[in-house]
Structure formats: C-alpha cells, structure tokens
Amino acid sequence: MPLSRQRRFPRTLRSVRAARAFALDALTEWGRLDRHDDVRPCVSELATNAVLHGVPPGREFCLSVVADGPAIRVEVRDSGGGHPHVVQRGDGDEPCEGWGLLLVTALANDFGVVVHNPGKTVWAVFKTDSVAAPASTAPHM
C-alpha cells in the first residue's frame, strides 16, 4: 500500500521552503533517503512555479508526496491557467524562464502535467532502490 502525505500552502515565497521541508520530512519518516538530493530541488522548482505562475491571488497550491514501491512521486496542483513547458537547450526565448523544468526533467525519471478545470498538476517521479517501510507500530520505551 502506498504511503502518502498531502498539504496545502499559501501563495507566498515562504511556502517554497515549507513545501520542500514537508516533502523531505515525509521521505525521512518513511526511510526513503536515497533520492533526497534530487527531490529537494525539484520540489523547490515546482512549488516556485506554482507560486509565481500558477496560483491566483488568494488561493493555495497543494503538494502531494507518495512512496509507492520503489518510486517516489511528487505532485504540485494549482488552480491557475497556463501550461508549463520545458525550455530546450539552444532556445533563444526568454533566457530566465523555463530552465527550472529542464532541471526537473534531468533529475527525475519521469515528469508531466495533467490539466484540470481549473488548473493543473505538475508531477515528477523518482525511481529508487528502496521500498517504503511502514511506520513502526511498536511502542516507544
């Protein structure tokens, strides 16, 4: 059975740090430490994009972290318009935009966007060698 955590964050840049900490705390709790260095910048990028481009004023974005077998999936859902795209190397368009998703595609094993009405979910999957361990039910001594 997959392990999952979900949390909503307000439209503020402080939420990027909070989202990153939330994701890493969940992975640590589940004993899934092997992809922390890849998940960290990807969650930062997806959360930053939601705050800057995807979340309308007064709204929130939702971060989901799921450990299912040997895979970790992170998803950021917002209610804004637009469709994120990855800048290809050599593109002359807007040198300061789109490069973060290129980083996500380089670090994650898979990446995509699901369009909703309203909004979208941007997701990334990280394959691992480990499997999530359920939280211990043994009493603490």
Rank of each mutant, 00 (worst) to 15 (best):
R7N: 09
P134H: 08
P57F: 07
V66Y: 00
E75S: 15
S44C: 10
G90H: 02
R20K: 15
L27M: 12
L27G: 08
R89F: 12
V125I: 10
M1H: 09
H85W: 10
A19W: 03
G100P: 06
E60A: 15
F9R: 03
P139K: 00
A21I: 14
C42T: 07
L3S: 12
F126W: 02
G82K: 09
W99G: 05
P57Y: 07
V122A: 04
F61H: 10
G80N: 09
S4A: 12
P70V: 04
V16N: 05
A47I: 11
V131D: 05
A71M: 09
T48P: 02
A106H: 11
A132M: 02
W123R: 02
F9P: 06
E94W: 07
R7T: 06
V131K: 12
W123G: 01
E94V: 09
P2S: 15
F9E: 04
G82P: 13
E60T: 15
G69A: 13
T105P: 00
A23L: 05
G80D: 08
T28R: 15
D93T: 11
V39E: 01
V115L: 11
P95G: 07
R73D: 06
A47E: 08
A47N: 10
R7V: 04
R35L: 10
L107C: 04
M1N: 07
D91E: 14
A71H: 08
D25K: 05
P118K: 09
D91I: 05
P41F: 03
R20M: 15
L13S: 03
V65R: 03
P139D: 00
P95I: 11
G119L: 05
L107R: 13
A124Q: 03
V43N: 05
F22M: 02
V104R: 07
F22T: 03
R8F: 12
E29A: 15
R40W: 01
G98Q: 05
L101K: 04
G119F: 03
M1W: 03
V86E: 01
G100K: 04
L63D: 13
V51Q: 08
V114E: 11
L13G: 00
R59F: 12
A19Q: 01
A23R: 04
P134C: 00
R77Y: 00
L101H: 11
H83R: 14
F22K: 01
P70K: 04
A133Q: 13
I72G: 03
S44N: 09
D37M: 08
C96L: 15
V39L: 01
R73L: 08
N49K: 01
Q88V: 13
V86F: 00
R5Q: 13
R40V: 01
S79M: 13
S4I: 05
G81V: 08
G119Q: 01
R5A: 15
L27S: 06
V131C: 07
C62Q: 14
D38G: 08
R73S: 11
R59I: 00
P41Y: 03
G54F: 03
G119R: 01
L3A: 13
G100W: 02
G31R: 12
V86Q: 03
G98P: 08
D91Y: 04
S4M: 11
L107M: 09
T105E: 08
D34F: 02
S44I: 03
T121Y: 00
E75L: 10
S15H: 02
R73P: 04
L3F: 13
S79N: 12
V104W: 02
C42Q: 00
D25Q: 07
R14C: 07
K120L: 11
A19I: 05
T105R: 11
A50H: 00
